[in-house]
Simulated scan of single mutants.
Amino acid sequence: MVWHGGGVSAIPAAADVLAPELEVLTLPEVADRLGLPVTRVHQMLRDGALIAERRNGVLVVPEQFLAAGGVVKGLTGTITVLRDAGFSTDEMLRWLFTADDSLPGTPIEALRSNRGREVKRRAQALAL
C-alpha cells in the first residue's frame, strides 16, 4: 500500500472532460480569488464544496464556479444532490456544463443567474 500523505493526490478530480476553451483556474488562483489559503481550497474539494478536473496533470476548477463573494450560490448543494444520486465527478462536471433547453442554458449558468431552485429540482429528479 502506498501512502500519499494526504496531499493533492487525495483530492477527487474528474478527467479532462470539459471543453478545452472553458476558462479554468489553478488551485492557487482559486485560493487567491477566494482570499483563502490553498490548503482550504484542497479541503473544499475533498468535502465536495467544489469539484475540479485534471488538465495535463494539473488540478483546475472552472472559473464559472466562482462569483464575487465566493463559490456560486447553490453550487455546493447541487454537487451534494448529484453525488447522492450516484454521479461521478466526471458526470457532475458534464451535467453542470451541458445545455438544458428547459432551463434554458446550462445548469451552471442557471446557478450563476440565481435560479438554483430550478437546478436543484432537476438534479433531484435525476436521482429518482
Rank of each mutant, 00 (worst) to 15 (best):
P37D: 11
L126V: 14
K120Q: 14
V58A: 11
E53V: 09
A85S: 08
F97Y: 09
A99P: 11
V8L: 13
V71T: 08
R33Y: 00
E23Y: 03
R117D: 14
L93S: 02
A31W: 10
F65T: 03
V38D: 08
L27P: 00
G105D: 11
P12Q: 03
G105M: 05
P37E: 01
V41G: 12
V17C: 13
R33V: 00
T89S: 15
D16P: 02
V24R: 11
D100R: 13
E29G: 03
H42I: 01
I79P: 04
P37Q: 10
R112A: 14
T26V: 02
V38S: 04
A52E: 04
D16Q: 02
D90A: 06
L82M: 15
M92L: 05
A15V: 11
E91Y: 05
P12L: 10
G57Q: 06
T26D: 05
Q64E: 13
G6W: 11
L128A: 14
L22M: 12
L27F: 10
G7L: 13
T89C: 03
D32F: 10
L128K: 14
G74Q: 09
A10W: 15
L50V: 04
L75Q: 05
D101H: 12
V30G: 09
L128W: 04
L18C: 08
A67R: 12
D47I: 07
E23P: 10
A125V: 14
G105E: 02
D90H: 10
E91P: 00
N56K: 13
R115P: 09
V8T: 04
L93P: 00
A127E: 13
K120F: 13
V38K: 14
R121K: 06
A99K: 07
S102W: 14
A10N: 12
R46L: 08
E91S: 02
Q64Y: 09
S113G: 10
A110G: 14
S88V: 03
D101W: 04
H4W: 12
P104M: 05
